[in-house]
Amino acid sequence: MLTRRIIPCLDVRDGRVVKGVKFQGLRDAGDPAEQASRYERDGGDELVILDVSATAEGRANAAHTVAAVRAVLGIPLTVGGGIRAVEDAARLLDAGADKISVNTAAVSDPALLSRLSERFGAQCTVIAIDAARREGGAEGWEVVTHAGTRRTGIDVIAWAEEAVARGAGEILLTSWDRDGTRSGYDCALLTAVSTAVRVPVIASGGADTAQHCVDALEAGADAVLAASIFHDGDTTPDALKAELATHGIEVRR
């Protein structure tokens, strides 16, 4: 039986791991390859590296970071951040990524997803969707881009369906309302998206406790992603899995 996945996420800028809430107040948190190795040892099922470099030079470094991580990492690696073209993806895949995650660039150019999927396959193409609840008491969620700074008005469910139709094989779904708050995943959002599509959905944004992860998985997520709870040493993927197992959730141990 397919197990539910625990996915640690490393934010990387200019070749170093950084920490911060909603990309504000970033501070150095170590070497990516060392952290990646530790997460594998601690029971991480996959790893996501999000390149948050602000400059072209920083992004050019991302391939070096991916290569260094790949040399030591024996679990799947998804890389996102700053990927605008098939060539960007090819460079990161050549360096050792297994999956490529696109976000803002796909919103402005949805055909990018089709091109990525045709070239590398759906199993390689991840759509990252940043979702925010609509303002002014309106129902539903809209897609936000540019690290949460722009509301697009695009309905999250409709965008998820389009992304899958264009060849995305997985959805990394971040609640922008919850990200960095440690107040729990947005379970209503997870249920809405995971029932609308057949591809796996990764919950992101808001994790603090094992109960939050249980709630997200029971709401329909196939995997949960977290950054700060693992960086800060509050818990490990293995410790989290031990708690999930007591709730009857199948995990790799």
Binding site: Q123, V199, P200
Partner: peptide, 13 residues
């Protein structure tokens, strides 16, 4: 089949 998530992504025993 249509009854499960496709692609199968993840760890299976």
């Amino acid at each position: 089949p249509d009854t499960v998530r496709v692609p199968q992504f993840g760890w299976n025993r």
